[in-house]
Design a protein around this nucleic acid. Structure first.
Lengths: 208, 208
DNA sequence: ACCTGAACACCGTTCAAGT
DNA sequence: ACCTGAACACCGTTCAAGT
C-alpha cells in the first residue's frame, strides 16, 4: 500500500518482502515494479540497478541483526556460545545468506560477531596476530558451516544409494560406521562438536 | 571444430570450456549453441535443459578429479594432508565450486576425500558414529572454508575503512591486533591452522 | 533419430519524453 | 525532482515441422 510518492525505503521494504517469501532469484525488477504499482524505471531512479538493490538489502538485513552477547563462565564456553548465536542468526535469515552469496559479500556475515570475538579472544589471553587469527578461524568456521548447510538443503534426496558404497570393505567391517554414514547428517550436533574442538584447541596452545 | 553430427560429449566439452573461461553465469544455451554452430534446440535433445547441463558438468568434473592419497606418519598428519589436498583440488577448479553452488550439489565436493577419510579415521582408532562424525567434521570444515574463500574473492576491496573500526578501544590497546585485523587474511595459513586444531582435538578425545 | 526456425514468456537496462 | 512508455538486447523453453 504505497502512498502517493515512491520512497527508497518503500522500494527496499517491498523488495525485502519479496526476497523473504520467494528467495533472491525471484526478485525481478519488473516483478518488484508490479508489486509497487510503479514503472520499472522508477526503481532505477530511487535505488539504482538490481545489484545495487541487492547490496542495499544485505546491508539492511545485517544492520538489523541484533547484538550477540556471549554466555558462559570459561572463555571457551563464551566463544562457543557466540558461534552458536551467530549460526542461529544466519539460519534465521536464510534469505540473507542467499543474498550475500549472490553478491559475494560474505564478509558482511562476519560482522555481527566480530567485536565480541575480539573481546573474548583477548579475555582468553590471546594477543596480536594470534588473537586476530583466532577470530578469523571462528568466523570462517561458522560462516563456512552455514554455507554448506544452506547449500545442502537445496538439493533434496542427495546422493541416493550411498548406503551401498559403504560396504564392509570400505568401512573395515564396522556396521555402526556404515549405518552412521548412511544416515542424514545431524548438522546441529556436528556444528557444536566442530566449534568446540576448534576453539578448545586454539585457546589451549600446546606447541609454538 | 565439430564433426558432422553433434554428440552429447561434444556439447559437454564446449560447455565445460565456456564455464572454465567465463564462469557458469556466462553459460547460456544460446551462446553455447552459437559456439557449437547448431540450433539452440539441439542441445535440448542431447542433454536436456540448462539445469541438466550444469548437473552433468558437475558430475563430469568431480569424476575427473584424481584420487587423494594421504601423506605423513601420524594419523593427524595424514588427515591434515588429505584436507589440504582436497582444498587444493577444489581451488584448482574454481568453476566447479561455482557450478556446485548454482545447483546445490555441495555433497559432491565431499566425495573425493570421503573414502580416504573413513580409512584414516579407523586407522586413528575411531569407530562407529564417532568415526562418521569425524569424517563429516573434516568435510564440512574443508568445503565450508573453500566456499567462504571463493565468495570473498568475488568482492574486491571489501569493507574499506575497517581499520578505523579497530581503534584502541575495541582491541584493548593492542596495536598489533588492530594491524592484523586490518590486513587481508592469509587464507592458506588460516586453513592449515584451523584444520590442524580441529583434527588434533577430535583425534585426541579428552572427555566423554 | 536428429536437427531446425519460429514463437512464447520472460529478463535488466537505457533513454528520450513527459510533468 | 520524479515518473513514464518504448525500445534494445538479451534470456530459457516449447513445439510443430522438417529430413
Amino acid at each position: 500500500m504505497p502512498k502517493g510518492t515512491l520512497t527508497r525505503d518503500e522500494v527496499l521494504d517491498t523488495a525485502a518482502g519479496l526476497v523473504k517469501r520467494h528467495g533472491p532469484q525471484a526478485l525481478t525488477m519488473r516483478g518488484l515494479a508490479a508489486e509497487l504499482g510503479t514503472a520499472v524505471t522508477s526503481i532505477y531512479w530511487h535505488v539504482g540497478g538490481r545489484e545495487a538493490l541487492l547490496d542495499a538489502l544485505v546491508e539492511r538485513t545485517v544492520a538489523g541483526l541484533g547484538e550477540i552477547r556471549p554466555a558462559g563462565g570459561t572463555p571457551e564456553q563464551r566463544v562457543v556460545s557466540v558461534a552458536c548465536a551467530l549460526r542461529r542468526q544466519l539460519r534465521d535469515h536464510p534469505h540473507l545468506v542467499a543474498l550475500v552469496h549472490e553478491r559475494g559479500l560474505t564478509e558482511r556475515m562476519f560482522l555481527p560477531a566480530q567485536q565480541v570475538l575480539v573481546r573474548e579472544a583477548r579475555a582468553a589471553g590471546l594477543r596480536g596476530a594470534r588473537a586476530a587469527e583466532f577470530v578469523r578461524a571462528v568466523q570462517f568456521q561458522v560462516v563456512g558451516h552455514v554455507l554448506v548447510e544452506r547449500n545442502r538443503e537445496r538439493a533434496p534426496v542427495q546422493s541416493p544409494g550411498e548406503e551401498e558404497l559403504w560396504s564392509a570393505e570400505t568401512t573395515g567391517a564396522d556396521p555402526a560406521l556404515a549405518r552412521a554414514l548412511a544416515r542424514p547428517v545431524d548438522t546441529e550436533r556436528l556444528f557444536v562438536t566442530s566449534v568446540r574442538a576448534l576453539v578448545g584447541a586454539l585457546l589451549t596452545p600446546s606447541g609454538t
